[in-house]
Design a protein around this nucleic acid. Structure first.
Lengths: 193, 193
DNA sequence: AAAAACCGTTGACATATATCAACGGTTTTT
DNA sequence: AAAAACCGTTGATATATGTCAACGGTTTTT
C-alpha cells in the first residue's frame, strides 16, 4: 500500500528514497479505509490529517446559505485530500470531504509531516514542487473562470482531466465548473452538433 | 529602497537578517522604475523577473478572444509582481502586467533567487510561508467565485482589500471580480439603500 | 423481487449579468 | 486653454445560466 506513495515521491525527486527513509515513511503514514459516502472531513471540524489516496475517489465541497453544494475539488488515486487552510492553521474547516467510492488513504498529521520533512530531504523537495504546480494550476483555473464561458471551461476540463469523466457523474463535474447539471447537459448537447 | 524588502522579509521570519545577508540581497535585487502605463510583462514574453514593489501600483490581466481585458491580480506596495507559471517554467506568458501608477520595483531573476535561497535560510522560510498563504488565499477566492453572487464577492473584496479601493478605479475592481463596471455600479447603488 | 435512490435530460419560465449607447464630470495630454 | 481620454452612471435590451418540475432509465438498497 505504501508502494504507491513511494513511487509518487520518486516522481518528484531525482534521488530515490533509501530503505531507511521508506521505513520512516511507512511508520508515519497510517493506512485508513473509508467507505463510499463516509466523511473524511466535516464542516466545522479541524482537518487533522492530509490523506494520500492510493485507491478510490473523493470530493471536497462547501455548502452555501441555501443549502446548495459547490464542489471545489475532485480527487482520485495519487491525489492529496485535505483542506489546506484548516490543515495548516488548525482552524475549523468551511468544507466537507467525503468518499465517492470506497477509498484507501494514507494519513499523516501536520506535525508528523513537518517532522518527516526534517529527516527526508526528498519530501521537502516534493512539497516545494507540489506547491509550485498547485499555484500554477490555481492561477489557470482562476483565469479560466474569469475569462471563459461555461462551454469553454468544460472543454478545458475534458482536455485536462479526462480521467475524471469516467469516475464522477456529470452533476459533480458541472458543480466543479460552477454551473448546474442542467446547463452542462445542454452544453454537451450543443457540442455534439 | 531595499529597506522595504528587508522589513518585508523580517515579517516572515523570527530571525532578523544579518548585515552580510542584507548585502547579498542588496546586490542581487536590482532597482527599477517604471512609468504609469508601461509594461512590466507582455503576453508572449517570458517573465524573466519577479518584482517586489516598493512604491506604486500595478495590474496583471489576460486578454480574451474578443479583446476584453480580465484583471487577475492587482498589486500595490509590498506585493510581488510576476506570472508564476512563466517565471518558474520559463514559458511564454499569457498575461500582461503594467504599471497603474509610477512604480518602483526591486527585480531578481529566478536563477539569482534560487542562488540567494541557498545562502539565506530566512528567504527559504519566507517563500514557504508565502506559498502557503497564497494557496489558502487562492482556495478562498476560488470558492467565493463558485459559491457567491457578484454582490457578496464585492462585499468580501471591500472587507479584505480596502486599500485597493483607494488605489484602483471601479472598472478594474469589477473586472477582478469577474463582472462588468456597469454591474458593479448597480450593485453599489443597491447596497447604499 | 420490489422499492427507493440516483442520474441525465427536457421544457417552461425566472433571474443575474452582459452589452450597447449615451451623458456629464473629471483628469490628463497636447 | 482647448482637446482628448478617462470614469462612473443610467436606460434599454440581449444573453447566459439558474430554477422548478417532470420523465424514463439505471443502480442501489431493502
Amino acid at each position: 500500500m505504501h508502494e504507491n506513495l513511494f513511487s509518487y515521491i520518486n516522481q518528484y525527486t531525482a534521488l530515490p528514497l533509501t530503505s531507511e527513509e521508506k521505513a520512516l515513511i511507512t511508520n508515519a503514514f497510517q493506512p485508513k479505509k473509508i467507505r463510499k459516502k463516509q466523511y473524511f472531513l466535516q464542516e466545522g471540524d479541524i482537518c487533522k490529517y492530509t490523506g494520500f489516496i492510493t485507491k478510490g475517489a473523493m470530493r471536497q465541497y462547501s455548502i452555501d446559505d441555501k443549502g446548495g453544494e459547490h464542489i471545489v475539488h475532485l480527487y482520485i488515486e495519487n491525489y492529496w485530500a485535505n483542506d489546506r487552510e484548516s490543515f495548516t492553521m488548525l482552524t475549523p474547516s468551511k468544507y466537507n470531504i467525503d468518499a465517492w467510492e470506497d477509498t484507501d488513504l494514507l494519513l499523516i498529521t501536520r506535525a508528523d509531516m513537518l517532522d518527516l520533512m526534517e529527516k527526508i530531504p526528498a519530501l521537502v523537495e516534493m512539497v516545494r514542487l507540489m506547491d509550485e504546480r498547485n499555484a500554477i494550476a490555481n492561477q489557470r483555473r482562476l483565469n479560466s473562470t474569469l475569462s471563459n464561458t461555461a462551454e469553454k471551461r468544460y472543454e478545458e476540463f475534458v482536455l485536462n482531466h479526462p480521467q475524471f469523466l469516467q469516475r464522477f457523474p456529470q452533476h459533480l463535474i458541472a458543480s466543479s465548473l460552477g454551473i448546474t447539471k442542467e446547463t452542462l447537459s445542454r452544453i454537451r448537447k450543443q457540442a455534439i452538433k
